[in-house]
């Protein structure tokens, strides 16, 4: 659970992850219905699930204003870690703390409703991300001009292309003015021109000392943005440190596997 800042352990820490473990339950027979559950009790198989240790005793600290990368092969627990920090999942052991306002760019536009117009969706998505209505009203024109969708203001989202939807989502999400930005593989949402604007916006946030946690397979981007990086594999920390060294380690273990 994400708790507000209150202690003195690390005065300039933005994110503290302390001995976090997370298990997922994988049912052997998926019992989703009451009937199957009752039946399962009689057969004595009520708790028939395997446990999968997605994260195993993870600890690290991200400093305020730092850009921090998380890399690793598929299924290594990167997204799980991001969701734990974002307060979406709960750890089984340990705790995570975030000092400041988090913008979860884990997947953009998940609050959009296809039957509502762009205008209505800006208000809906903006409020889901924690903006007040007055704030949205204030930033409304900026969102539309940034996403270059002014003339589609009253069109329903279901008629938007996926690129248009992503642009609208990104333009709304950056207005949350976060202290901490969680990014999970999202930097390819539009055409070249829009991507350039995205990169520019993220650079701007870096300059404003927004803490950025960046999960990606694009090692080139990680190298470019992050000063420190964490390498995860099978739920364990392999290495944590200066980005180019960690990337080297990652490439090394990838080669060993082949």
């Amino acid at each position: 659970m994400t708790r507000p800042s209150d202690d003195k352990e690390a005065p300039h820490a933005a994110i503290v992850v302390d001995h976090v473990s997370k298990k997922f339950r994988i049912p052997l027979e998926k019992k989703y219905t009451v009937y199957q559950h009752l039946f399962g009790i009689f057969k004595g198989g009520y708790y028939s699930y395997n446990e999968f240790l997605a994260l195993d005793d993870i600890s690290f600290t991200v400093n305020h204003g730092e850009s921090f990368g998380i890399i690793g092969p598929n299924g290594s627990g990167k997204s799980t870690l991001l969701k734990l920090i974002g307060g979406i999942l709960y750890p089984d052991k340990g705790y995570t703390r975030a000092y400041g306002r988090i913008a979860p760019f884990i997947e953009l536009g998940v609050g959009f409703h296809p039957e509502l117009t762009a205008r209505e969706n800006i208000f809906l998505y903006g409020s889901i991300l924690g903006l007040k209505k007055d704030q949205i009203r204030e930033k409304y024109d900026e969102i539309l001009s940034f996403s270059e969708l002014k003339q589609f203001e009253n069109m329903k989202i279901k008629n938007f292309s996926s690129g248009m939807t992503a642009r609208l989502a990104f333009a709304t999400a950056i207005q949350t003015d976060p202290d901490i930005l969680l990014i999970d593989e999202m930097l390819a949402v539009g055409d070249e021109e829009f991507n350039y604007k995205v990169v520019e916006k993220i650079n701007e946030m870096k300059e404003r000392e927004v803490t950025i946690l960046f999960v990606s397979h694009a090692l080139r981007l990680v190298q470019q943005y992050c000063s420190r990086t964490l390498l995860l594999s099978k739920g364990k920390i392999i290495q944590i440190g200066e980005t180019s060294q960690v990337i080297e380690k990652y490439l090394q273990i990838t080669r060993e596997h082949q």
Binding site: T2, G86, I88, I102, P104, I106, E107, V110, G111, I128
Partner: peptide
């Protein structure tokens, strides 16, 4: 499911 899986509130 999208909201529950991706955004905290």
């Amino acid at each position: 499911p999208g909201l529950v899986k991706k955004i905290f509130f």
